[in-house]
């Protein structure tokens, strides 16, 4: 990545530098829309059958490891033998007209708002292509163009001491400054590469593993995930992890300075944060 400093736009000794290439920016904003649509339409698809199983098969009379359901007047999330009350949010909630609904996820979290499995599938299975095709192109560009090297952690960065130091810096909201801010830190590398090379392909492959046609075409999908219902469970778990990533990601953008961060993802240009006086002391070799 080019880090040429534009000397014509230096503010208080903090230069505006080129940070993100256009493929990163374009893919980021495509995904910002596509992933949200996939998440919300996926929650509606889950609403058709709010139970998860392990193995090849599973239906109402089989044991579920996770269930979002309702009693006469309450909603709950059952995780193994633990039952969490979720009235008002999951399993038992009221729609815009105040009518009690017993689907797993509430209307504000789903596409569409009112229950429709067919509409949710239409959204999900169309946007799936907008996830897969740009995703494959981004992968190709990352590997050929070297971006993957910027994303993947180096061996020295994986040393527990280095990771721990970075966790402490994040917890104290001490973000990299100066030249260090031009590179991803280890927590960014782990989360970004975990999403790009881990969660997203896992979501796509577990999605395909739920397709009876793909099971015939690529039987290894079933073996890879241990059956169709296991694939459905892993698809759900990966979704939860991706949603958690988005929450933390947005939080970090806000904490690190939303204007500068969002600008860097829109125009590619990033105002380099000033070096702190104690920065050298914080650095771990």
């Amino acid at each position: 990545m080019a880090t040429r400093i534009r000397t014509d736009s230096v503010t208080d000794g903090r230069p505006l530098v080129k940070r993100h290439g256009w493929p990163v920016r374009v893919w980021h904003w495509i995904n910002a829309v596509v992933v949200i649509v996939m998440l919300m339409s996926g929650l509606m698809i889950f609403n058709a059958h709010g139970r998860l199983y392990w193995g090849q098969s599973g239906a109402n009379t089989d044991a579920a490891w996770l269930e979002i359901g309702s009693t006469a007047d309450a909603g709950y999330l059952q995780l193994g033998s633990v039952r969490v009350p979720t009235t008002g949010v999951l399993g038992y909630w009221r729609n815009g007209e105040g009518v009690v609904q017993r689907r797993a996820f509430p209307g504000w979290a789903t596409i569409p708002t009112a229950y429709s499995l067919s509409a949710a599938r239409r959204w999900h299975l169309f946007f799936a292509w907008l996830l897969v095709v740009p995703g494959l192109l981004f992968w190709l560009w990352s590997v050929v163009g070297g971006h993957a090297r910027a994303l993947l952690p180096m061996r020295t960065e994986l040393a527990p001491r280095h990771v721990w130091a970075d966790i402490r810096n994040h917890a104290r909201l001490r973000f990299p400054a100066g030249q260090a801010a031009l590179k991803y830190n280890i927590l960014q590398k782990l989360s970004y590469s975990g999403v790009v090379f881990g969660l997203l392909p896992l979501l796509v492959l577990t999605g395909l593993a739920m397709s009876p046609a793909m099971n015939a075409a690529w039987p290894w999908l079933l073996d890879l995930f241990g059956g169709r219902q296991s694939a459905r469970s892993l698809h759900f778990i990966a979704m939860v992890l991706l949603a958690a990533f988005i929450v933390v990601h947005l939080l970090m953008v806000v904490l690190a300075g939303p204007y500068n961060e969002i600008r860097s993802m829109v125009t590619g240009r990033f105002r380099l944060p000033a070096e702190r006086a104690d920065a050298k002391a914080e650095e771990v070799a």
Partner: peptide, 12 residues
């Protein structure tokens, strides 16, 4: 064989 309902459940 496995029967896959559009709702998400399966039975063999």
């Amino acid at each position: 064989t496995r029967h896959d309902c559009v709702e998400g459940w399966s039975a063999i």
